[in-house]
Design a protein around this nucleic acid. Structure first.
Lengths: 125, 125
DNA sequence: ATTTTATTGAGATCAAATCTCAATAAGGAG
DNA sequence: CTCCTTATTGAGATTTGATCTCAATAAAAT
């Protein structure tokens, strides 16, 4: 099944790039404001396609709906448990896999959970 | 709201400990075979409570339903994209957080994705 | 210009998880 | 022990993110 390039797909991609870790629903909401004729399934489908093509990364955080990241360079994420902010962190190192020869690692996902500075300060008082 | 210790909660805990990264549904299925009167909501609720209490860890993997881990010692996970196996890896090191003073890290989650040896072998041929 | 078929959009459908609420039972007080 | 408060349970309804269906459309090869 050869893939075709469509106006909708590129529109979805541009919306994704203009948002920070949006959910599919958020991308849909933004697009609907611009081109009301776009369908929800089209947005969800195209985000999947973009992830398949490596133009986006699908993110999963605890008890959260899926999010998409237009930044496909390897990086970590920090999630604040108080304000729910999701913050990109530069990947300073590749983590060596413990028992390396038993697995072929294609991707690694590293998430930190805790309090951002702002929320830490607020809670201390 | 003081927590009470119930027969059901401990039953759920024992079922969790006897399974390897089960989904809530799998725990429910197992328990239903043993004590048919148990309710689905009870199982789901108690797994949440166990996670809250630190007696279990709730796991999230891409496009998967939530799973629970009775092993609460910090460790990594490897997920095979072909056979979907989820494998515990010993945590050989704590990863230092890049911009450490801006965040208070309480947990870190490290997942590797790729092929287990078996599937790697099968695909090569 | 014609043909093939990937893609779209509206709405239906699915499934995991949560919520509702009356009945039950844990566990502290007397 | 008995009584009382209220956390917990269980059945089923509900929610909600996401996928599926299918006729209409449009990309792109011939």
């Amino acid at each position: 099944m050869k893939r075709r390039s469509t106006k909708q797909r590129e529109t979805v991609y541009m919306a994704l790039m203009s948002l920070y870790h949006p959910t599919a629903e958020e991308v849909y909401e933004k697009l609907r404001a611009e081109c009301p004729s776009i369908g929800r399934a089209t947005v969800f489908r195209n985000l999947s396609v973009l992830a398949e093509e490596g133009r986006a990364v699908k993110l999963f955080f605890p008890d959260e709906v899926a999010r998409y990241d237009g930044n496909v360079d390897g990086h970590y994420h920090f999630v604040c448990r108080r304000c729910d902010a999701i913050i990109d962190l530069p990947a300073t190192q590749k983590l060596p896999l413990p028992v390396s020869d038993a697995f072929t690692v294609e991707q690694q996902e590293i998430n930190f959970y805790g309090l951002c500075r702002e929320c830490h300060r607020k809670i201390e008082q």
